[in-house]
Amino acid sequence: MQPPSPQPAVQQVQPGQPVQHAVQIALSNIETIPGRTIQQSLGVATGSTVRAKHIGKDILAGFKNIVGGELKGYTELLTEARNQALERLVADAAARGANAVVNVRFATSAVAGGAAELFAYGTAVIIV
């Protein structure tokens, strides 16, 4: 458990667009940042968010569910929520003085009451 890091404001990001973080931190889900060298490891950086659906979206999704296929409202909601989890991961890494997070992984779990928890974690490192 770490002291709470300052939480950045949520960005409205369109699906398919990369997130512009306030602090420039390189992210990757492989062991290194390609073309760079890791100098120091600073422990695990985490970021999580719990989101519940808006009832209107829930009803619309219920209608869309009759024919099957994509539920766009949910796709957007989860994209937004995952970007927020990444923002928090980046803020945590920045608070540790890192300039990159490697081996980023995601976990999703449904918690009670129609809410979903989105969790991102990775190793905060200093790269040169």
């Binding site: 062991e31 940042i33 296929g69």
Partner: peptide, 25 residues
């Protein structure tokens, strides 16, 4: 998790894509 050998990497970034889907009633 490895890149092509012998090539220089200019840039890298984490990319995400998701979709929520459901079968019909």
């Amino acid at each position: 998790s490895t890149t092509l050998p012998g090539k220089t990497i200019v840039d890298s970034q984490l990319l995400l894509a998701n979709v929520v889907s459901a079968p019909s009633r």
